[in-house]
Design a protein around this nucleic acid. Structure first.
Lengths: 230, 230
DNA sequence: TAAATAGTGTCTCTTAGACAATATTAT
DNA sequence: ATAATATTGTCTAAGAGACACTATTTA
């Protein structure tokens, strides 16, 4: 009853938590799923690695905050992302109350090569879950949650396409699926499943000492959201 | 770069949004999916219907806030709920910046009968989507999102079990599935699919002028989270 | 022509979907 | 017996999984 009154009366005057967005920036490189982490320069969790994140300004949407964070980390502004989960335990940050909205962002490794991030801190890409360092706050749990969600969506959505460039070969895409699912797939079956969702181009790969592979494009529009361009 | 500095320095001193939880409290009654709404007594959206919700206190977790809200609305403390999505557009509340974490709560209709809610305002159960009134804020969108999520989870989780009491008949459960999915199912196939997930009891239904139906219990532990007891 | 990878044809087996038949209660 | 609903058996069709075969490039 009191809270009711509180709510309708003047919630603005009560103390509020801080709100942040935290980023699960994922890519696939060297046959592994990798996540971007930053080393913390001061307490708490000094020296630990943490997910990139920013506080949400009073005049910006969650998506704008995510785009801002992505731009800082990669220099890119058209990376696909989607909201995952909001973490609000009282003690998750020992300094102050922070409610954190986590987002998963997926990017093809080739787009990252000239690492154009304007980051000051030390950053690194870590293989998941093989090569993860000690992580700050509840970020290890966030990561597990993200990977679980990603794995779950691989079979019934086209989310895996976000890990390959606009033109890709089917063997290349198959490797992405295999890495995400954690087991090998049969070429023939994979192609039967994927072919309706892609469009063949005229081009073939070149320069390798074996039969070249045809390049395909995503046919789009089917079951996955588009890139969150800004 | 500025935001980085801001973040690591002292985020506490900057203005913060308010954080609320909003509740999609759903049940199945009279062959329809229904949602609980409250009529707003003052602006904005005076007279419109809105989802129940509360502001998140500085010392309570999101789940605690949800349980508090559920208790106010129903008098119950062991209703299943799960987080859906966090809505953070700048203008979604014309008064002040509110970031809202929406939760879906599912309850069997029989538990609601002696409506023990301690609500002051006018509340009502509305059939979705047939009998929805004009809704405040972005709550209509929240509802669509919730129903979509619910429908999507019906086939690959046991979420539908939350709409039936601990002991239920298979025809009863089948009706829940049919309402959620929006189409009829074949008895024989439904039973084949469900039987591994339930445990038969010794009891049968009584008092109807036809063959009685066996009561079953959910075998649990398989693929769905448990109730969020408090 | 050998090595290496790309791409295709086809068989099997599981399972979802459809329908028919039988069972058990009250009137 | 009849009405009404519960419960079971079985056929079919579609799709996932497995494997063998063919194709095309460079060295």
């Amino acid at each position: 009853m009191e809270e009711r009154f509180l709510r309708s009366y003047d919630p603005a005057q009560y103390e509020r938590p801080s709100v942040a967005v935290d980023l699960l920036l994922l890519t696939i490189e060297d046959g592994q799923l990798k996540v971007l982490l930053e080393r913390r320069a001061e307490p708490p969790y000094e020296g630990c690695w943490a997910l990139p994140g920013v506080f949400v300004g009073l005049q910006e949407s969650l998506e704008t905050a995510v785009a801002r964070c992505l731009s800082e980390e990669t220099g890119l502004s058209d990376i696909f992302f989607e909201q995952l989960y909001t973490w609000g335990d009282v003690g998750r940050d020992p300094r102050l109350r922070v409610i954190s909205v986590s987002y998963m962002a997926l990017v093809p490794a080739v787009r990252l090569h000239p690492v154009a991030g304007r980051r000051v801190q030390e950053v690194g890409w870590f293989a998941v879950p093989e090569a993860l360092p000690a992580m700050a706050f509840d970020h290890a749990r966030m990561l597990r949650c993200a990977v679980e969600r990603l794995r779950g969506k691989v079979d019934y959505t086209d989310i895996a396409f976000h890990f390959v460039p606009p033109r890709f070969t089917l063997p290349e895409l198959q490797r992405v699926y295999e890495i995400l699912l954690g087991h090998e797939l049969y070429k023939a079956n994979f192609r039967k499943k994927i072919l309706p969702r892609v469009r063949a181009t005229e081009k073939l790969t070149q320069g390798e000492s074996h039969r070249p592979s045809r390049l395909y494009e995503y046919r789009g529009g089917s079951c996955e959201e588009e890139k969150n361009d800004v």
